[in-house]
Design a protein around this nucleic acid. Structure first.
Length: 307
DNA sequence: AGGTGTGTTGAA
DNA sequence: TCAACACACCTG
């Protein structure tokens, strides 16, 4: 499961509910859609929980969570961002701190929603509180010189294709990303790793070993990164770690990327992964066919607009 | 295949 | 505004 500090207003009292009979069993979810006792939280068919908030007649999806209490906190964060600190929340006792309010104010609604959906809100808030001191200054990315390069990889077509996973070269994986069965962050198989990108944004990927292909891979969360950055086969991704603090610094890592120069083809997003793949395979990074295919509205995760 | 998130509807 | 419900489509 995801760590307990997924989403939340600093505190964590909440004697509300969880105390008593903590779900006799998750067994009833097959046919009985037990409604959530939390505002903005809806049950998912598989027993998990979704969070959503409404903004001017439109639903804004805040992501899915394994625990309805965490989903409820995600809703609370969104509620404050969308409706102000007076908004009705699931945990009235846990009001956001001044710092968190500043953090929220410093980010657009869609940015906050993205963090919630990626389950990186808590991590980004920590950074914001740490770095962007004083008024809710925008989060400043960690300067490159504070990062120690671990390794780079030129992404393959399948790394940016519909497989939604990045194969981490075994040598680098075993050297830099030892896959331990550590207590926390362990999700069934694999672990959840946080990476800060060049903009100071945090990404969470599931990292695991696939027996079938005998390879180490970054899976869940990776496709979102590929999509947002518009990564194409031939581009390079670099993984680094903090040069100072112990690498145990909240096991915070960095991920950066570099586009390979292409013929006057701006950073088109590969909406059509298949076409992008075929093109890249043949041309070996040298692109001719212009259209990266962005034009039409982005699909999937395009949501919420700004005030 | 399983899970996520949207379409949609009716109630608050 | 909001959640129940169904299910198309995406991801892992």
């Amino acid at each position: 499961m995801d760590s307990g500090t997924e989403v939340t207003f600093a505190a964590s009292n909440s004697s509300l509910e969880s105390g008593g009979a903590a779900e006799p069993a998750a067994a009833l979810h097959l046919l009985s859609r037990q409604p959530s006792r939390f505002k903005g939280v809806v049950p998912q068919p598989n027993g998990r929980w979704g969070a959503q908030i409404y903004d001017r007649h439109a639903r804004v999806w805040l992501g899915t969570f394994s625990d309805q209490e965490i989903a409820a906190r995600a809703y609370d964060v969104a509620a404050v961002r969308y409706r102000g600190c007076e908004a009705i929340t699931n945990f009235p006792g846990e009001r956001p701190s001044a710092g968190e309010l500043a953090f929220l104010a410093a980010h657009s609604k869609s940015e906050i929603v993205d963090m919630l959906r990626k389950h990186t809100y808590a991590a980004e808030l920590r950074h914001g509180l740490c770095r962007g001191r004083g008024m809710g200054a925008r989060v400043q990315p960690t300067t490159p010189w504070a990062q120690k390069l671990l390794f780079e990889k030129v992404v393959t077509p399948s790394d940016v294709g519909k497989l939604s996973r990045l194969v981490v070269p075994k040598q680098h994986a075993e050297k830099h990303f030892p896959l331990k069965r550590s207590p926390e962050n362990t999700t069934g198989n694999g672990v959840l790793l946080n990476f800060e990108d060049g903009e100071g944004k945090v990404w969470r990927f599931r990292y695991s070993y696939w027996n079938s292909s005998q390879s180490y891979v970054l899976t869940k969360g990776w496709s979102r990164f590929v999509r947002e950055k518009g990564l194409r086969a031939g581009d390079t991704v670099a993984f680094s770690q903090p040069v100072y603090g112990q690498q145990d610094n909240n096991n915070q890592l960095f991920i950066n990327y570099r586009k390979t120069p292409r013929k006057q083809d701006e950073a088109g997003h590969p909406d059509d992964a298949i076409a992008a793949e075929a093109r890249s395979i043949k041309l070996f990074g040298v692109d001719i066919a212009g259209g990266g295919g962005r034009e039409a509205g982005e699909k999937g995760t395009a949501n919420s607009w700004e005030t």
